[in-house]
Design a protein around this nucleic acid. Structure first.
Lengths: 249, 249
DNA sequence: GAATGACCGGATAAGAACATACGGTCAAAC
DNA sequence: GTTTGACCGTATGTTCTTATCCGGTCATTC
């Protein structure tokens, strides 16, 4: 309506520009959500901060919710990629993997909030579908990973695969939630917490007898393979959320 | 006002009758809270069901909240007493203690709700003072118990006492909360869950090397002593809540 | 004294009427 | 074809007012 539109339309915008713009929008979203929380962050706020029109956001995502889903998925990619990068320095054990995962989870407010169902930050988004939560998105590959470790004697064999997953998830959640509830003066540092968590988790699944020769090497390979797969999965889901790739289902 | 009072006043009521009546009121409270939840259960409902007048309840407790506190404390006494009874059949290990505690917690709706902060059942009571929650009421003795085990080589010594408590509390919470979140078809049975929990908890604190000779016997004695102390503590707090004993502080 | 239940007042809910905000659309501008 | 932002309808607050409820008290009864 207004004739003095600053600049409507024009440069056809190639794919690279489109992608950069999507990330700019996600940057703005992350910043505002961390400051005000999901409930109080409006699409218009985001548009203003990303310096695009509101309608432009809807050229990328069909609904507000899909926008936030993309944000969480991008965070998840960053997290698991960082784990992938740092795991090469370590021994490639379950213990090491848990410690890295915990440390990364603790240092990323959005991912942590999404995992813990922190309604302070994520508001109504928390109460939504639990299926597509971080646990579920990375959980599928995880069970097969544990299965591999078990087959090679790197894990105890008297728990079913499902029970092993339950055990690890419980330990993970337990430490994160309890730490959050503790008064700060009693709370261990994030590094120490990651260590305690990894310790408890790996001990819970440690094999009864001595580890077979060569199991360490096999385990390290399986761990790396799992993390690689998890990175791949996370990236694929992110590409779907960014419209870079069609959803295959 | 009404002249046709069924029967006001009379039998001076000795202490035994008083106590029996207090328990009748608590019975009624438990039943109604389990059915309707804390928020929806009124003092008048309770009075009606316990067949006393509303004012009579205030002869026992100064406020509604103190009444519920008494209820939770009574539950806690029953729980820990049952643990005390059943632990004599077992080996008196930390593993055995955890398994019994978990099993009892899982089978007692009110205690479980109070521990998990289940606002479905306990409503506003959940959001109140976290200090006097089950964890805190039994936690003091617990840390000294773990200290004893550690001194005798029955626990690893590379975690501080506080870290040991944090670890066990995290494992306990984690299993209970995660189980509650799982879809029922994946959830292990309560017995199995208690077993997994006890396994994870005891392994997390297991000593590095072999257990010193005689440590098992010492540990069993310490475990029994702890449970006895916990029973004693719980009973004392209950007596305070029932007006049987003055609060000493 | 002991027990009762009518009664009190503050808190909370229910309802109505109104205002605002926000997710999502689309005709117009380039 | 791309981008925009005014516009739409609904969902969500806000501000009153009114009604009900319920924790706690206490004069009355035995």
């Amino acid at each position: 309506m207004k004739p003095e539109n600053r600049r409507a339309g024009r440069p056809p915008q190639d794919a690279a520009h489109r992608l950069a713009r999507a990330h700019r929008i996600l940057d703005a979203t992350a910043e505002l959500v961390l400051r005000w929380g999901y409930d109080k962050t409006t699409v218009e706020d985001i548009a203003r901060r990303a310096e695009v029109a509101k309608g432009t956001i809807y050229l990328h995502w069909k609904t507000r919710e899909e926008l936030f889903s993309a944000l969480l998925r991008r965070e998840r990619v960053e997290m698991i990629t960082e784990v992938r990068r740092r795991i090469e320095d370590g021994p490639g054990t379950l213990h090491g993997l848990l410690a890295l995962l915990a440390a990364e989870l603790l240092s990323r407010p959005l991912t942590r909030a999404s995992l813990l169902g922190d309604s302070e930050v994520l508001g109504a988004l928390t109460r939504r579908k639990r299926e597509s939560t971080a646990a579920a998105e990375l959980g599928g590959d995880f069970q097969t990973y544990l299965g591999t470790l078990r087959e090679h004697g790197a894990l105890r064999s008297d728990l079913s695969p499902a029970e092993q997953v339950t055990t690890l998830v419980s330990v993970l959640y337990g430490f994160l939630i309890v730490a959050q509830m503790m008064p700060p003066e009693y709370r261990p540092s994030d590094e120490r917490l990651a260590e305690l968590l990894a310790d408890a988790g790996s001990r819970a699944l440690a094999p009864a007898g001595p580890v077979p020769a060569g199991a360490a090497r096999t385990a390290a390979r399986a761990t790396l393979a799992y993390v690689d797969a998890a990175v791949e999965t996370a990236q694929r889901k992110l590409r779907v959320s960014l419209g870079t790739e069609e959803s295959t289902q």
